[in-house]
């Protein structure tokens, strides 16, 4: 308990326990760093403290080894970043459009719509994969760009996947923006589109950032859907690619794999830092007043 009479020296056991916990928490990430720079590239050769320093592992990601397999790391990385950015953008955009309607308009079926969204969100995405696979397969026969093995198709599936939960989150935030702001703009002559762009969206930046960040990181992390829809190794996203990389030549690829992991972490961590200040505000809502 918070006892102001206690002296600081009595805290040593707290520090001790916390340092043990921290050691456990940071051990794997630290190990990845050491492994990435370790000259011995095999899994069996790694140790926690690197014996020698090298950049070979990174080179292995970008340059094909003589007689070795083709490397696709750059393609995977690019694919993941592009699809994650696009997904974040469109999730926020399309979600905000719908959330605005649900928050500000009164129309038939509004309540039912919100409940329905909640219900279908409980249908785990995986259950749908068979159907989605077939839909994408058929779509591809008509519009090849939206077919199997295409990132565009994957993007559409991602967009629909988390739509309803994001919609709920954004609607909650929009509800906390005083309706007088809309009404005042209406009296001043703004159209609904202008109110949406000029008033609501700028005020909703916290929640939009959080939703966008979750979509971004979520996409970088997604494995299941991508593994069903993407077929060839040159079209993989990072999780798929690295999984394939480590499962085919597990033992000898370890150094390069660690280097790849190190690089792959960067976008998510950058995204995390970038919107950190909005996370609390975005999740607690209602901080717009005044």
């Amino acid at each position: 308990m918070n006892d102001p009479t206690k002296r600081r020296g009595d805290d040593w056991w707290r520090h001790l326990i916390l340092w043990v916990a921290i050691a456990l928490a940071v051990f794997p990430p630290l190990y990845v760093i050491t492994a990435a720079f370790n000259a011995d590239q095999t899994l069996s050769g790694t140790s926690f403290l690197p014996r020698s320093f090298t950049l070979e592992n990174f080179k292995g990601l970008f340059v094909q080894k003589e007689g070795g397999a083709e490397v696709f790391f750059v393609r995977w990385f690019r694919a993941s970043i592009i699809i994650a950015l696009l997904n974040a953008f469109f999730t926020v955009f399309i979600g905000a459009l719908s959330a605005y309607a649900f928050s500000r308009f009164r129309f038939r079926g509004r309540r039912m719509g919100m409940l329905f969204l909640l219900l279908i969100q409980m249908f785990p995405g995986l259950l749908n994969l068979v159907a989605i696979y077939l839909i994408v397969l058929r779509t591809g026969e008509v519009v090849p760009a939206l077919g199997l093995n295409k990132l565009t198709a994957l993007l559409l599936v991602y967009l629909s996947g988390a739509m309803s939960i994001n919609l709920w989150l954004m609607k909650g935030f929009f509800d906390s923006i005083p309706t007088e702001l809309d009404e005042s703009a209406r009296v001043d002559g703004a159209t609904p589109a202008q109110i949406f762009w000029g008033v609501i969206l700028p005020l909703a930046v916290p929640v939009l950032s959080v939703v966008g960040m979750f979509a971004f990181v979520g996409t970088l992390n997604e494995f299941m859907t991508a593994s069903v829809l993407l077929e060839t190794v040159d079209n993989f996203t990072l999780p798929l690619g690295l999984q394939a990389y480590i499962s085919t030549n597990f033992e000898e690829n370890w150094g390069s794999f660690a280097a790849g992991v190190l690089i792959a972490q960067i976008p998510a961590i950058v995204g995390f830092v970038f919107v950190q200040k909005y996370i609390i505000a975005g999740l607690t809502q209602g901080s717009v007043k005044g």
């Binding site: 005083p178 007088e180 702001l181 009404e183 005042s184 209406r186 009296v187 001043d188 002559g189 703004a190 008033v199 700028p202 005020l203 717009v288 007043k289 005044g290």
Partner: peptide, 18 residues
């Protein structure tokens, strides 16, 4: 509203915070 040529002042002022 916009065609009525009126202006309105709200209780909470409805100023745009941004």
């Amino acid at each position: 509203s916009k065609d009525r040529d009126i202006a309105m002042v709200f209780q909470n002022y409805a100023l745009y915070p941004h």
